[in-house]
Design a protein around this nucleic acid. Structure first.
Length: 404
RNA sequence: UUCCGAGUAGUCCAACUUGGUUAGGAUAGCAGGUUGUGGCCCUGCUGAUCCGGAUUCAAAUUCCGGCUCGGAACCCA
């Protein structure tokens, strides 16, 4: 009987896991370089943590079940509620602002699609307890720094950014009769036919012509026009002034989920628009208070591994991995001597892959090569009598004799 | 949950249209040629029709259901 992997999960063989470790490395190094500290949280949680803000319907998209004590539990589908729980439970004793990151494995009960799986990794970084716009700038800067760490540039991606408060101002100024429906419509805009969008817009918005005009504008023209009609743009504009217009694009249709964002929200997309959002996040100033904690402002983002991997593959930006181990080939009865040499090399900080097979020397070379190893030490019975081992470079074929 | 497409050795592909010998090839793996110098080459071996049912003398091939994969809708935290 053959048992296959579970739907929407991936099997990570060593070569796959090398790639994942590359992602983890870039995530970690970038975060550390900007003063973020890593934390980790349980994979299993009380389901209430996720239904608190998202409602009972969210259970349909969770892996949830009852444990033997009849408790409702689930596999975590996002990290932010857990972070909020930590802050509620432990945050009082921690100096603010808190700058943390994590790389959780997450689970969502969905039908797999392009860039969406049931199990995936998602880098998360957050700043808690400092409402200044510099927190948000720091967060977006980190997100960009990470993508640059993968050798992506602003020719490959753009960060689309919006402000919930600007939308709320527009709702008042332009006369919107159903603000929730308006949010949902903006959110769906990019997926809709233009005429369908227009049709619904006319129903919802009194001054829909002005809105259409706004949606057609970009950059400073859009800022100026928003200012003209009485919208306060100071906060979001300062983000542009520091991070730069090369990376950012004000886009009034960026909404993200309705559950907890309060003002600035952002999403990054590849410039060809082939993939889903590369990362997304925003400011969520009520979540911690709503979960029973202090009134702490927060901002953060998540970056999943699936879209990122697809993007890096399509841009051919995944690195070739080198195996810096040395291989100890053996000839004849010299296992004990090889062991001594192995331990000596290990104590010098060298990774050593000792031959454990009865294969002849040729096959041992092929084995080493298949593992990406470049340096082989040949340990032979005869040479050992003369106190010699041979060091061979598999790429160049060069050999040198060294003392055993 | 809904819609569309696809499932043949580890991987890639052929045979399916028009049912009919032992399901063929490439590559990878293993062994040998060649147990002290690999990568080329040669020989041999291992290894597959997703699962279940129907039709039929006969099913990889046709039909139905399921499962998985890919894509899309919904949703997207």
């Amino acid at each position: 009987m053959m048992i296959q992997g579970y739907i929407g999960t991936r099997d990570f063989l060593p070569n796959d896991w090398k790639i994942m470790n590359y992602l983890f490395d870039v995530w970690k190094k970038s975060s550390n370089s900007m003063g973020f500290e890593e934390y980790e949280a349980p994979i299993i949680e009380d389901v209430k943590l996720f239904t608190a803000k998202s409602g009972e319907e969210i259970k349909n998209q969770l892996f949830w079940f009852k444990d033997k004590g009849d408790r409702d539990v689930c596999l975590r589908a996002e990290l932010t509620p857990q972070l909020a729980r930590y802050i509620v439970n432990y945050g009082k004793a921690i100096k603010k602002p808190i700058k943390w990151f994590s790389m959780p494995r997450l689970f969502r009960y969905e039908k797999p699609q392009k860039g969406r799986l049931r199990e995936f990794f998602q880098f998360n970084a957050d700043i808690i307890g400092e409402e200044s716009i510099y927190s948000t700038i720091e967060i977006i800067s980190l997100a960009i720094k990470i993508l640059e760490g993968f050798n992506l540039t602003n020719k490959d991606f753009k960060v689309k950014i919006n402000s919930r408060k600007i939308i709320d101002s527009l709702i008042k100024i332009l006369g919107v009769n159903d603000s929730l429906a308006f949010y949902l419509l903006l959110d769906k805009k990019s997926k809709m036919e233009e005429k369908d969008f227009l049709k619904e817009l006319k129903i919802l918005v009194t001054d829909y012509k002005r809105l259409l005009q706004l949606l057609s504008l970009k950059g400073n023209e859009l800022f100026d026009e928003l200012k003209n009609i009485g919208v306060n743009i100071d906060r979001i504009k300062s983000v542009f002034e520091i991070i730069g217009y090369d990376y950012l694009e004000l886009d009034l249709s960026i909404i993200r989920g309705l559950d907890y964002y309060t003002d600035i929200v952002f999403e990054a997309f590849d410039t060809k628009n082939e993939f889903r959002a590369i990362f997304g996040g925003g400011e969520y100033n009520n979540l911690i208070k709503d979960l029973g904690g202090d009134n702490l402002p927060a901002v953060g983002f998540g970056m999943g591994d699936t879209v990122l991997l697809e993007l890096l593959k399509s841009k051919k930006l995944l690195p070739e991995f080198v195996n810096d181990s040395v291989f100890l080939a053996t000839i004849g009865d010299c296992y004990k001597d090889a062991l001594k040499i192995k331990n000596k090399l290990i104590s010098k900080g060298i990774n050593v892959d000792l031959n454990v097979s009865n294969k002849n020397l040729s096959k041992q070379f092929q084995y080493a090569e298949s593992k990406g190893i470049n340096t082989v030490y040949i340990i032979g019975e005869q040479d050992l009598k003369n106190g010699i081992i041979v060091k061979k470079d598999l790429k160049t074929g060069k050999e040198e004799k060294i003392k055993a």
